[in-house]
Design a protein around this nucleic acid. Sequence first.
DNA 1: GTCTATAATTCGATAGAC
DNA 2: GTCTATCGAATTATAGAC
Lengths: 211, 211
Amino acid sequence: MLYFNEMATVKKKKKTDGAEEKILSAARKLFTEKGFDAVKTRDIAKEAGINLALLNYYFRSKENLFVIIMKENMAKFMEVITKIVDNEETSLEQKIEVLVANYIDILSVNPDMPLFVIRNSRIDDQRMKMRGKFMNSYFMEQVQDSIKKGKIENINPANLILNIVGLTIFPFVAHRMFQSANGFTQKEFNELMQERKKLIPKWIEAMLKVK
Amino acid sequence: MLYFNEMATVKKKKKTDGAEEKILSAARKLFTEKGFDAVKTRDIAKEAGINLALLNYYFRSKENLFVIIMKENMAKFMEVITKIVDNEETSLEQKIEVLVANYIDILSVNPDMPLFVIRNSRIDDQRMKMRGKFMNSYFMEQVQDSIKKGKIENINPANLILNIVGLTIFPFVAHRMFQSANGFTQKEFNELMQERKKLIPKWIEAMLKVK
DNA sequence: GTCTATAATTCGATAGAC
DNA sequence: GTCTATCGAATTATAGAC
């Protein structure tokens, strides 16, 4: 009986258990899956199991709620890059390995994230921060250094980035189409991605020897 | 003066010159660029330079018009694959070369097409047709054959396809974000793609030697 | 075939009771 | 904090004149 008394004192106001968080979860799911325009505030309220008015009570507007979700997603993307790309302790090969592995792990749990970010890049006020993150990184210094030393062939940095990101992220961008086209289950798809985690760094390495 | 007489007899009814086709063009442009929900029928009518009611006169509904554009885009994608992949006259290397070159040429003119197709794969009733197109093709026979003969390493066919398609198409999927993040002009981006047209087949070849 | 005007619906947001 | 009810704007679709 003690438990109930304790619980009663914790919350002072009547509250649908974690309404704010439930709305956020619903918004995250639907916006990431379908994009801003396709999702209606009524859908979010229904998915969250609360009333339409409550959504506006907590978040003021649909736009506002959307921006929160978008920043969340962008932050996840940036976090990986930031941590890895300017580490002066790791080799070029290690960086590529960790970068690929980290992204595949995150995206295996959030497969719709890349498409969401790409679709909404127009609205994003932070995308510019990505500029330079790669290009002016210690990673790029290492690339230039390796080229000078003849360890890898001369490659356009833009191509290197497009290839790493493309090989890693494209399967997730296209995963719905790819899965239905090939009759893959979610599990089979994820196993394939785990396989790619090991292979992509090797493929990149092989590319870098191409004249 | 003969010309004018001829022209006068061709069309019997008063007609805003090619209204139907003008609506289609406008819809193609806007839908491909922005997607179904973000485009309003008023936008299409305005872009086409005709009245809103005329759009419904010709196409009955927004949904209907959209499906037409979507099938068009899917067909363009499939056409390239179909032509190339079952040709028994060309080598594996030639097929990859032609496939990549064809897609890059098409996408350089229609850079928003891939994202459009990916976004709307859920609505597409034809996507299943893609299944098998690759997997059961002469192309795949050639791959299996090359593996047997030890000319290339054993590779999961799904990975081969993901890599070819990913390297080729991903830059276009992400082109808006990529361009703004790197300060590329449209011209610079297209030049980069032309460069990749030559490089991607070489990269794929190098990958296929990876154990 | 093409237009103007308007009906019908959808959707984001708010007022106000509890 | 949470709900019901509803407003007001935007949007798709249609009626009806020319």
